[in-house]
Design a protein around this nucleic acid. Structure first.
Lengths: 112, 112
DNA sequence: GACGCATATCGTTGATCTACGATAAGAAAA
DNA sequence: TTTTCTTATCGTAGATCAACGATATGCGTC
């Protein structure tokens, strides 16, 4: 009746569990980062920020068919994921890609 | 009053638009694929399918702390994204990664 | 044909997203 | 200090997600 293959719950107290835990950690992180760009508008924002060498402020809004508040909301999500950083520059705010995080995302996806 | 930079709506009838359109297309596709794995459970499923050389059926359910119906729902999402394929094998169904799609996802992310 | 197993689908509930307009907050300029 | 500009936040409405249990479906087996 028990036709489980080699790597199943039977040895749930050995390396299995450790492996599962690290998998979960990276799964969680990958899910978090991919979720950040799991919307066309946010992909677009990231592409925009990458296309310019330096940071950009609310021109992003001009480039998108969305209300300013909506863009701000998307930026918040990107910031919370760590993919994007924002720096205050006088009255406006400059956004730029967090290359470190982008690299991590790329690595996590590539390692799939 | 008009302080737009070089690449703005002013030349909205030239190459600008074409570029924007292709950007949108890839943005859309990238958003779709990343959204498919934008959940820990779905990342876990993908990792599981990749860890085995061949397809797997409902053992996935055993490996996850989720109800069968929930897992099935996640599988449906993965199938709809194209990242996963399912083949009927007698009474059960074998799932496997669609390598082509996974490659596309990797390329899209790497090209960011 | 009736049963058992594996999987999908339905229906529901609560949470979260997405989008917007309106408004607040902060800094420079008048 | 008041105004203006830029950005964030609030409040809201509708849509979608995530999870579950219950049920339907489809295929082998008795």
């Amino acid at each position: 009746m028990d036709k489980r293959p080699a790597n199943s719950k039977t040895k749930c107290c050995g390396e299995e569990v450790t492996l599962a835990l690290t998998q979960d950690a990276s799964a969680e992180q990958l899910a978090k980062l991919t979720w950040a760009i799991a919307h066309p508008a946010r992909v677009r924002i990231v592409q925009l920020l990458l296309s310019r060498t330096s940071c950009v402020c609310g021109e992003i809004v001009d480039q998108m068919p969305l209300a300013q508040s909506t863009v701000s909301q998307h930026l918040k999500i990107l910031k919370e994921s760590g993919l994007v950083k924002g720096e205050i520059d006088g009255p406006r705010i400059c956004y730029c890609i967090n290359q470190k995080m982008l690299k991590q995302l790329k690595r996590l996806v590539a390692d799939l």
